[in-house]
């Protein structure tokens, strides 16, 4: 992968838990699997061109299962002296730099599936709705540590608006 341009010299990225792959595959499996089954019923009955619909869903499912591990491994974050760096994306890549002092609040979120996997999402909010600073798939202990670290760093470097 020619990701050189999106690597920043001197920054070591921490990656997120691989358990996120399972969780995301499960959710995608439900969202694409249900319509697949529903579309397969008339296909079995009538046959022929009606198979196109379930085939499309199946193709998407295979593609998603292939893509999800790459997406999850592309997520990285780095805690620098003054800023938090978050890297994301395979096809659409992005890097966000969020200064700790700009933090308004931190969210730690976990749904029923992620909780069973023992992971959580940490999201940093600034005064801008454009700041997309969410780190999904952190092990619970790491999420709690990061939350405390971010609040602490934010307090120490508090800036106005």
């Amino acid at each position: 992968m020619e990701s050189a341009a999106f690597d920043i010299p001197g920054v070591t990225w921490s990656s997120v838990s691989d358990k996120l792959i399972g969780v995301r595959r499960l959710t995608t499996g439900i969202w694409l699997g249900l319509p697949l089954v529903i579309a397969a019923v008339p296909a079995v009955i009538f046959g022929g061109a009606v198979w196109i619909a379930p085939a499309v869903f199946a193709a998407f499912l295979v593609w998603a299962f292939w893509l999800i591990p790459r997406q999850v491994r592309a997520i990285g974050y780095a805690e620098l002296e003054e800023d938090l760096l978050i890297r994301k994306g395979v096809m659409f890549r992005s890097i966000v730099v969020v200064p700790y002092g700009r933090m308004q609040f931190v969210d730690v979120q976990a749904g029923p599936l992620t909780r069973r996997a023992g992971i959580a999402q940490v999201q940093l909010h600034t005064a801008s709705p454009g700041t997309d600073a969410a780190i999904p798939g952190l092990p619970e202990a790491e999420a709690a540590r990061l939350r405390d670290r971010l609040s602490e760093a934010g307090e120490a470097r508090l800036a106005g608006l």
């Binding site: 999106f6 992005s94 966000v96 700009r102 600034t126 454009g130 700041t131 997309d132 600073a133």
Partner: peptide
């Protein structure tokens, strides 16, 4: 507030 770079395919 924060900065970012983005890149599509």
């Amino acid at each position: 507030q924060s900065l970012g770079i983005k890149q599509g395919p």
